[in-house]
Structure formats: structure tokens, C-alpha cells
Design a binder for these strands. Structure first.
Length: 405
RNA sequence: GCCGUGGUGGCGGAGUGGUCAAUCGCAUCUGACUGUAAAUCAGACGUCUUCGGGCUACGCAGGUUCAAAUCCUGCCCACGGCA
């Protein structure tokens, strides 16, 4: 397990490199396709591979609940279990602390469209406590399963044990992902807690993974404040156990606003060591990914391509559109003219629209193929541009078309 | 021909004197979705509107009533039964 840096974007933090894993290399920057429950929804691993995806990310919380991490351990890890033989990542379950906790029942997302006011209801932001499914304390998180209501508890140690069983090549320290509505004080509290958990994660992981098969990434938090973000990055970068073990890379977590995503990432990556990979967690949409790449992130993952696909939204180089809109029922063009994906080379908008209206399962599959292909291609193109010293030109061309049509 | 039942918005189907432009479901239209509580969710859905409201509507035509989708009369239509 290692990371090698091959090329830097002159004048920015952006770079291209390779992460070597026991299941193959990941050329970075790379987009990890999300397969939360050991399946990329609506797609077979063959399809995912054909689209050019290099790595699949699954979720600790979900796989712990179903089918249980022991079963996956016995299957040889979630990769073999799902029939994906390339590199893999698992998230720690930390994000569910947010989505089942402070964000529960709220219309709060990872990337807020505008600067939101701090919650008047709760310093941590979001809903009243009695409605949520997860509650955080200094030692861990107690949560109720969204599937059957049963109560469970995650600690940093437990997350490491489960992720060890799930067997991904790259795993994350257990962290607390905060709401963008949380107060500064709460962001600081959560960040300090995340740092304490980071050390516990590191210690427990090194007990389990003596041969260092997995890369463990520490997760930077700190909300939208520059001082906290920088402090978090510095703290994690220098964190080490008594035996000298350190993180193999870093995740950048938490929530952002659309406006400050780039700057927040920049603050963090200015502090993080250059020789270790950085994963921008849960991002994202095309423009956000390019921003992340420019500011020095190597890995991305996001549910957007597959989720919006299943809901009928199609990525194109001139922006997104909804295939279910009436005008596409008779449109005999491919989803995006010129696209080389399987869907675009075999089917029309009218056909895909029909599948959506008829509620056929293939609708989500064909749309997902296109959107994942689109996103992977975008990142591949950016990587190539970095190697060719044309990144800014590449980004400018993309952004102009994508956002101004 | 007689008897019975029923005709409500694109469809199905509530409502059986006032709070009904009419519950609800489907369809339709539009929007949202960023470490997947998500093949999900939200809004609109007679018509016009200066967004206060106005107008036209519950098979058709009359009638009763302050007030009718709801009660009465006739007609038309559908389904079932008997001749």
C-alpha cells in the first residue's frame, strides 16, 4: 500500500499520482463509485468496470446491519463478496452519525446551496433529539437501525473492527460529521472528539492490521471555519501512536457551502503532507470535483451520479436535464449526443424516457451507466490534463459549457 | 317492456342538503437529490386572476330550498335480473 505523486499542477495544490493497493493501482485523481451495500445500485460489477471505474466504496454502517460484517469477512471481504475484484474503500459509518443524527428529518445536505444560519433549535443544528436515530457522546454513537429500529453502538474501535472484516483496501477513521447549521462551538467540540477518535481508530487498526494491508485515512473536520479546518488538518497530519504509526492518508469530511467548498479544501490541503493521498468525502457533482482536484484532492466518491440517475436526471457537458420531462418522449437522440457509453451507443432518449414512465428497472440501470461513465470520464480527463499541463484549460472549457447553457 | 342498481375532475373512486372546485389513489406536469434512511421525496394538477377573488362544474333538463354533487320530477345512458 503506497501513494506516489507523479505530477503537480503548477501554481496550485492539484496533482496526479497513483495509489497502489493489493487489488490494483488507482490512478489519481480518481472517482470512487459508491456501492453502499456492496452493490453499485442498478449496476453489475462488469458494467462498473466497463465504465472505467477504478474503485468502489461501500459503507460500514449498512453492511454491519445487513448482512453483517462476519458474513462478509467469511466471503473474503466486500469486494469478493460482490464480485468486484478491483480496489475498494469503506466509509467508517461516521457520515451516518450526521444523516441519522443532526440531519435526521431535516433538509440538510452535505453541500448547502447558500450560507445557512446557525440553528436556533440546537447548537449541533438540525432536529429535536427525540426524533433522530443517532446520538453522539464522547465515546461513540448510539443509533437505531433505520431498517428495524434495533439499537446499536459504534465506537472508533468497533468501526475499525467492522472495517477490518469488510476488508477494503482503503478505510476511514471513525469521525463525527457535523451539520452546516451547527454552531462554531459545536463544530469545535465535534472536531476535538473526531481527533480523539482518530487516535483510537489508529491504535485499534494497527492492532488488527499487522501486515498493513489496509490504508487508514484520518478524517479532517472543522466545519466552515478556517482556523478549525487548519487545526484539524495539522492535528491529524501529525497524529501518531506510541509505536509511531500514522495515518496513510486523509479524508476531508463535513459540510460546506457551495461558495466555500474550494477554499475550505484549500485550507486543509495546505496543511496536509503532500506525500499522502487525500479523499474528499462525498463530493460530488462535476464542478465540485474539478474544484477539489484543483485544490489538491486525489480521491472522490459520491452517490450523485447513481442516485440522480435513478431519479431521472442525466448529466451532459451542457448541464443536467430530467429525462422524464415531456419533451423527451419523442426524442430519438442518445442521452448525450457524442457520448460513448453503452446507453448512448445503443438507446434513445425516447426509449429511456419510456422506461422511466413505465417504471421499468432498466431505466435506472441505463441512466446510471451514463452518469457514472460521465463522472468517471470527467475525472479521467482532468487527470490526463494534469499530466499534459492543461488542467486549467480543461476545467475552464468544462465549466463554461456545463454552467452556462 | 318491466324491475333493480348506477352515472362525480384524464382514469379509478369518496362524498349523500351548507365548512365542496370537491377526501384519496393512479396518471400527468415540474422541481429537489453531493462519505445512499433515496428505483426516493416535494409541489402543481377545472378555468381566469391586479392573487383579494371571479367564473364554470358532479349525465341532461326542470323544480324544491336562504343554500343542491347531495332532495323531487322527467329524459338520456350503462350494467344486472325478469319477460
Amino acid at each position: 500500500m503506497s501513494f506516489s505523486l507523479h505530477k503537480k499542477i503548477p501554481g496550485s495544490l492539484g496533482r496526479a499520482g497513483v495509489i497502489h493497493t493489493p487489488h490494483g493501482d488507482i490512478q489519481t485523481p480518481a472517482f470512487a463509485v459508491v456501492g453502499t451495500q456492496a452493490t453499485v445500485k442498478a449496476l453489475t460489477p462488469d458494467m462498473v468496470k466497463t465504465m472505467g471505474a477504478q474503485v468502489v466504496l461501500a459503507n460500514t454502517y449498512h453492511l454491519y446491519l445487513e448482512p453483517g460484517d462476519e458474513i462478509i469477512k467469511n466471503a473474503g471481504g466486500f469486494g469478493p463478496f460482490m464480485g468486484w475484484h478491483g480496489p475498494t474503500i469503506t466509509d467508517s459509518g461516521g457520515f451516518q452519525v450526521f444523516s441519522l443524527g443532526a440531519a435526521f428529518g431535516e433538509h440538510v445536505s452535505k453541500v448547502a446551496t447558500q450560507t445557512q444560519n446557525q440553528s436556533k433549535k440546537n447548537p449541533e443544528g438540525g432536529t429535536k433529539n427525540n426524533e433522530r436515530l443517532a446520538r453522539v457522546d464522547d465515546e461513540g454513537v448510539t443509533f437505531r437501525s433505520h431498517r428495524d429500529g434495533s439499537t446499536h453502538r459504534f465506537t472508533p474501535e468497533r468501526s475499525m473492527e467492522i472495517q477490518w472484516n469488510l476488508g477494503a483496501d482503503i478505510i476511514f477513521a471513525f469521525d463525527e460529521c457535523t451539520s452546516p447549521q451547527a454552531s462554531y462551538e459545536y463544530q469545535k467540540t465535534a472536531m476535538d472528539r473526531t481527533h480523539a477518535w482518530a487516535l483510537q481508530s489508529l491504535i485499534r487498526h494497527n492492532e488488527l492490521d499487522k501486515e498493513k494491508k489496509q490504508m487508514l485515512l484520518g478524517v479532517v473536520q472543522g466545519g466552515q471555519s478556517e482556523d478549525l479546518r487548519r487545526e484539524s488538518a495539522r492535528t491529524l497530519a501529525s497524529l501518531q501512536t506510541e509505536s509511531g504509526d500514522m495515518f496513510d492518508g486523509f479524508g476531508i469530511g463535513g459540510s460546506f457551502t457551495k461558495e466555500d467548498l474550494g477554499t475550505a479544501v484549500k485550507w486543509v490541503n495546505e496543511e496536509l503532507p503532500e506525500e499522502k493521498p487525500r479523499h474528499l468525502l462525498g463530493i460530488g457533482e462535476p464542478g465540485d470535483v474539478l474544484l477539489g482536484i484543483e485544490h489538491g484532492c486525489d480521491l472522490f466518491d459520491c452517490v450523485a451520479p447513481t442516485r440522480i440517475a435513478r431519479n431521472g436526471t442525466i448529466y451532459t457537458h451542457s448541464g443536467t436535464y430530467s429525462i422524464t420531462n415531456a419533451q423527451y418522449r419523442t426524442d430519438m437522440q442518445p442521452l448525450e449526443p457524442g457520448c460513448t457509453c453503452y446507453t448512448c451507443t445503443h438507446f434513445t432518449r425516447a426509449y429511456v424516457a419510456h422506461l422511466f414512465h413505465a417504471k421499468e428497472m432498466l431505466a435506472g440501470t441505463l441512466a446510471s451507466i451514463h452518469n457514472v461513465h460521465f463522472t468517471v470520464q470527467l475525472v479521467d480527463g482532468a487527470r490526463e490534463a494534469i499530466h499534459n499541463d492543461t488542467f486549467f484549460e480543461y476545467k475552464k472549457n468544462f465549466i463554461e459549457k456545463y454552467y452556462h447553457n
